[in-house]
Every structure is written in structure tokens, then in C-alpha cells.
Amino acid sequence: MLSIEAINLDRDQLGEGPLWDVEQQALYWIDSFAPALFRLDPKGARKRWDLPEKVGSVALTRDGRGAICALKSGFHRLDFASGEVVPFAPAGPTHPRSRINDGKVDRQGRFVAGSMDEAEQDPICLLYQLDQDGTVSVLDRDIICSNGPCWSLDGRTLYFADTTRRLIYAYDYATQTGAVANRRVFADFAKLGLAGLPDGATVDSEGAIWCCEVYRGRLLRFLPDGTLERSVGLPVESATSLMFGGPGLDIAYVTSMARPIGGVPPKEREAGMLFAVRGLGVRGVPEPRFAA
């Protein structure tokens, strides 16, 4: 039976990047505008780390001591014990109006994150790949708003959304080198008649792609051939991202935002809260850690 519960009643201005860590059995997420990283442990205790710049996404490190944070000026390392944030790698070519946004770790431990135009209007942004030694490569260009990177179960297909263009792309992904090729449209929201935009995404254990349809308030499930298999309504239109977690990896944790859009505040009281969606009938896959 489907159930949706708000598990964090604080309202994030821009909740993003839910990340379930299997080893700790703990949930992490960010408020991009606070800016801060949060952790909710199995007993319900909450931890907050304040960050010096807007944050688009984070990747936990394999040593368990901290995280790599995609901040406006580049990739930084956060030490969980001290709270210290130090530069790890610059983002490379940037535009004054861009900042790094959504990102995830591939099966080999590389961090892939793209940037976004903060005005969400021009193709001035890039898709980056961060290696464990701090090397940053550019995988793609001419992006307006990066979101939703995730991989097929075999790691050979990268899915990635340009939110403003209302498109989800698929790329061939070379697992040994991290190179991408053969970009094609995986899902065109306009052609599918979807009113919202593609935002954060993840892949389930059956290889299907789940995406938040922001400004419409739905979870969408696409089969690997691009077929839209189902949609699930949410309490808020401003849902931004999701990740499967919990002991059985069968709970979809969904973030949302409370910030006004175009000067208009969200109409729902729950906007900005963190939700747990149970009863979807599918499981996720463990999220890799960054290889450093």
C-alpha cells in the first residue's frame, strides 16, 4: 500500500540530493541555499554541517570521514569531525552566472556533476567528471541546467537531464575510462505531454529510471527503453530529487523546495519538507562512494 510521510518538518529553501548510505544506514541531503548538509541516522538523530557556498550535490568518501561537496567555486572536501571545508579541485572553465548542481558517483568511484545557469536561460554550463586524484574532465557542454545523473545497472549508460530543455539524455559510458559518447534523447517531456520538468533521478534494481517531475509534483518511472511506465503523485509540486533507501532499499526519499519561484511562494504547507514514500513495490541499488 502506498504511503507518503513527511519525515523532516523543517522547510528547506532548496532541498536536494537525498543520499542513502548503506554502510551507516543513514540518510544525507542538502539545502542548496542554506547552504548546508544534513544527516539523519537510524535512531532519528540529526546532524548539520554548514557550508561556505551554495551546494549542488555531495558524494561520501570511501574512508567514511567526510564528503566531496560540489560548491559554486568547485569541488571541496568536508571533514565530518571538524566541519572544516577545504578546496579539493577547481571546476575548470566557468561562467560568472553558473554553479555546480546535481551530481552522483559512478560504479568506479568517479563523481559526475554538472553546472547550471542560475538564471536558467542560457547554455553556458558543463558536465564535469571528478577523479579520485582531483583531475576534472569535461564530459559535455552547452547545458542550461544540469540534473539527475545516474547509471544503468551495468554502468554502461549514463542518464542525465537538462532541466530547462525538458530533456533526459542517455550516453554510452565507458566504465574503464569514464568517457561518454553517442548522446541521444531518452525522454522528451514536451513530446510526452508532461507539464513539469525533469529534475533529480535514480535507478532501481530492475534498471528503471525514476525522476522527479518538478513543478508538477510527481515521481515518474521510465523503463530502459524510454517508456513512461507510471507516475506517482506527491503532496508538493516542488519535489526536486529522490533516492531509494532504508534497510531494504525500498523507501523513496524525496526532497522538495520552499523558495518562491518567480516571486510566488509555494502553495503547499509541506513545500520544502523531506518525504518518505513507501509501497512502490521496487527497490533501489546501493549508492557508491567517491574513491578517495
Rank of each mutant, 00 (worst) to 15 (best):
A179D: 08
A161G: 01
D162V: 07
S137Q: 12
L37K: 04
D162Y: 13
W20V: 02
A89C: 06
L153V: 04
E16M: 05
V185Q: 09
W210Y: 11
E120S: 14
D162R: 03
D172F: 02
Q25P: 07
E118Q: 14
F38N: 07
I7L: 08
L167H: 01
G217Y: 12
A113W: 06
S57E: 12
V138S: 09
G114N: 00
I68L: 15
L27I: 05
S137W: 09
L2K: 07
L78D: 06
T240I: 07
P288V: 00
S57T: 02
T135I: 09
S238T: 14
R99P: 06
P265D: 03
L71N: 00
T157W: 04
D41C: 09
V254E: 10
S73T: 15
P42E: 06
Q24D: 12
V85E: 14
S231H: 10
A291F: 12
P123Q: 13
Q24M: 07
A271M: 06
G56Q: 05
Q176I: 04
N182L: 02
Y28W: 10
P224A: 01
D204I: 03
P224L: 01
L60T: 02
G178P: 12
L139W: 05
D79I: 14
P42D: 03
I30C: 13
S231W: 13
